[in-house]
Design a protein around this nucleic acid. Structure first.
Ligand code: MN
Ligand code: MN
Ligand code: MN
Ligand code: MN
Lengths: 221, 221
DNA sequence: AAAAATAATTAGACTAGTCTAAATTATGAG
DNA sequence: CTCATAATTTAGACTAGTCTAATTATTTTT
């Protein structure tokens, strides 16, 4: 069955807007995500339902079918592999890769995806620390928590960011915070959920709740 | 100005259907090339004329404007660079790269094209021996002639093929004929323009007029 | 439980790109 | 040069994807 570029984008959006699988995604969230009108989203959801990619009941929002979930994960895999390619091989910055990967993810070829994966040495994560689904669609589970959820001071490895906007990524770069870095969490302010940490380079950085909430880290044994 | 994927395909087709620049390309050749109806081609040509990409007079066919020529060459550059990437880095065979490059050539990013070029070490030719235009759109001129135009026996380097069909490329692979090989042209039959040559590996291969006409070679000093 | 506010759907229109069928222009054989 | 044929263009219709405006359903408030 033919899946159009637009349909692929919707599938990926539904997948990434739901925090846990089978969370219902509303029409309005999709419309907002695509900067389009609710009527257009309705139209598309009905189309996707016809293709058995989503469960759709009028006024109730959508969830992915098994088939739809498989497709969405597959597109995410392509997206993240291309991001690794752009970052590792073409030396793009981590704030530049997303927009290009948005285009590249629609190149239709199973074989290409798998060869790219091999060429890149089967990377586990993309430049933002997002896990790359394997050939079968399996996604490695992730133990990292947002800095805002950490209650114990100490050493943590930064493994992932959940805001991919240029402004956020540039801010982190300026603060010398990179994926993979081990930082020392020195202060946790219960009052406003902000924190203070020492970077790999030794600088002291203060992070607001907003920034900290988008940085995932795991305890360094 | 926005150029759609379809418009890009038409521009590239016009460019590659004309043997010498400013050769007029007819409506029917384009319709045939895209396996579409003449009415659709007319529609598109009028659209391209509106965008000042082609010179179009009713019933007279089209040629590229300066602006259109620039655009077409640019798309050809992207196509051929991606072919090199697929061939060199992902180990696709020379008969597999074209279809994928047809998709990849539409990724819109000047920066990506130039970085890919650099990553591949500024290749001169794609896997079929077709020259890759440089950043400015300059195309290296090509001294090679079809085997059917060669009158002198001797040693020749195979530099390019002009039929990109899987069946032709597979045929050459079976006969052990590759781009870059130096072959010994041992017989030239004036009667049917067929020829006989000895490959790098020492095999004797007979080539029909049809096959020989799509193999370009240059004299080996 | 009804009214008000919000969210979602439908109806109808528009563009890009395609098609078929009909009309028009060019060509080339006699 | 004229008429038949081939090539091209136009007219009108269809699909995907979008929009606005109007309608309907759900949720929240009172
Ligand atoms: Mn991304
Ligand atoms: Mn990413
Ligand atoms: Mn090609
Ligand atoms: Mn080629």
């Amino acid at each position: 069955m033919e899946i159009s570029l637009t349909e692929e984008n919707y599938m990926k959006a539904i997948f990434s807007l739901q925090l846990n699988a089978d969370e219902v995604v509303s029409n309005s969230r999709l419309a907002e995500h695509f900067n389009t009108r609710a009527a257009s989203a309705t139209d598309m959801l009905q189309r996707l339902a016809d293709k058995k990619l989503v469960h759709y009941k009028k006024y109730q929002g959508v969830t992915l079918t098994t088939k739809g979930h498989k497709l969405a994960v597959h597109i995410v895999r392509r997206h993240r592999l291309w991001e690794v390619f752009l970052y590792e091989k073409l030396q793009f910055k981590w704030d530049e890769v997303h927009d290009l990967a948005e285009q590249l993810e629609h190149i239709q070829s199973e074989e290409l995806t798998n060869r790219l994966d091999k060429f890149l040495n089967h990377p586990k994560c993309d430049p933002h620390g997002d896990p790359i689904p394997d050939k079968k669609g399996q996604i490695r589970s992730d133990l990292a928590k947002p800095l805002t959820h950490i209650i114990q001071k100490g050493y943590y490895r930064i493994t992932r960011v959940t805001d991919h906007s240029k402004s956020f990524l540039n801010y982190l770069t300026e603060q010398n915070i990179c994926i993979g870095d081990v930082v020392k969490l020195e202060e946790i302010n219960a009052y406003d959920a902000s924190c203070k940490l020492k970077t790999t380079g030794g600088q002291i950085v203060f992070l607001s709740q907003k920034a900290a909430s988008h940085i995932l880290a795991e305890f360094k044994k």
